[in-house]
């Protein structure tokens, strides 16, 4: 999985950097695997409920909802787009519309339309960031605020309930003993991984994030690639929101609050560089597994929600700081 990433960085960067980067690569990967093991070990010691199939299945299901967004967010970070803060808006868009439109056009068209409209929000983000050149965080913050406001206005600021039990059964159901949500996550993760590591689009994404001017000079359509990352994130967030709405059978406007931070934490903890040009979907998912297990252990341990947010914040600072430090060593 990392062969492709190494190959790309080998082509792009000089020999000295590649050596440094390989060391950093091995370190960060082994470190994360070790951390996941440590958390799992700690969890099974502290709480007898940790290693039960019920608990792990719960973790897997909640991880899948965030995980779908993580796949998109990886593209945003790799392309050098910092972060997409409009995720709560796109998730709300996906959840509210896929439930709210059910009576009118049926569950599947409602879902597709919801994801499409979420993608439209992403297109706005993408145009502002990629073509107009606005700071991604400011652009997505503004567009997210507008989008969330419009979605709230559309439903009058109230909670929307589902009206199609069959679709709920499907979203909550299992296929070959695995929850459908988890399967959808796996499919999206595989597609995301394939696109980022094996396709021309992924190569362009890595090149744009690594060195914007060089990529531009090499005839990479940098503006479109940058915009595309935000569209991908919005689509994945829309899907995630739609699934969330179908499973809960209710959607309030603030349903997606906090998901942007969970996704960003997973991606940066996975070792994807916040500066761009480096990272892969499996790395981000490893980060996601670590963060989710840690959260789960904290929940089983009776740690209150605010403290969990606190820990997430510190994880972001630590991961970003470490990334900056390691990168400096690799380049210098």
């Amino acid at each position: 999985m990392s062969d492709a990433a190494m190959e790309i960085s080998g082509v792009k960067r000089n020999d000295r950097f590649t050596r440094g980067s390989r060391l950093v690569d091995a370190l960060s990967k082994a470190g994360l695997a070790f951390a996941i093991l440590a958390v799992a070990l700690y969890g099974s010691v502290v709480s007898p409920a940790f290693f039960t199939s019920g608990n792990l299945l719960n973790v897997l299901t909640s991880m899948s909802i965030v995980g779908i967004v993580v796949v998109g967010m990886t593209f945003v970070l790799v392309v050098g787009g910092l972060a997409d803060l409009s995720v709560p808006a796109t998730i709300a868009c996906g959840a509210i519309l896929s439930l709210g439109l059910q009576p009118m056009i049926g569950p599947l068209p409602a879902f597709v339309l919801a994801v499409g409209l979420a993608g439209l929000i992403g297109l706005l983000n993408g145009v502002l960031v990629g073509y107009v050149g606005i700071n991604p965080i400011i652009a997505t913050l503004g567009i997210g605020t507008i989008g969330l406001g419009i979605v709230q206005a559309a439903v009058g600021g109230v909670i929307v309930y589902g009206s199609n039990p069959a679709s709920a059964e499907f979203a909550k159901g299992r296929l070959f003993g695995i929850p459908v949500v988890v399967l959808i996550f796996l499919v999206i993760a595989l597609i995301g991984h394939f696109v980022l590591s094996r396709s021309f689009w992924g190569r362009w994404t890595l090149a744009t994030g690594g060195n914007y001017s060089a990529a531009e000079a090499s005839a990479v359509p940098v503006q479109a690639v940058k915009a595309g990352a935000f569209v991908i994130t919005a689509l994945t967030a829309g899907i995630s929101g739609g699934l969330l709405g179908l499973t809960l059978q209710s959607a309030r406007p603030l349903i997606g609050a906090g998901y942007e931070f969970s996704a960003i934490t997973a991606v940066v903890v996975g070792g994807v560089s916040i500066i761009g040009g480096f990272g892969s979907v499996p790395r981000a998912i490893a980060g996601l597994i670590f963060v989710q297990l840690l959260t789960n252990v904290m929940v089983l341990d009776g740690v209150r929600t605010p403290i969990q947010g606190f820990v997430l914040g510190i994880l972001i600072v630590g991961a970003v700081g470490m990334d900056a430090a390691l990168r400096k060593r690799g380049v210098a």
Partner: peptide, 9 residues
């Protein structure tokens, strides 16, 4: 990015 994280904290 940093103040985003400290905002959460």
């Amino acid at each position: 990015v940093l103040t985003l994280a400290t905002m959460l904290i």
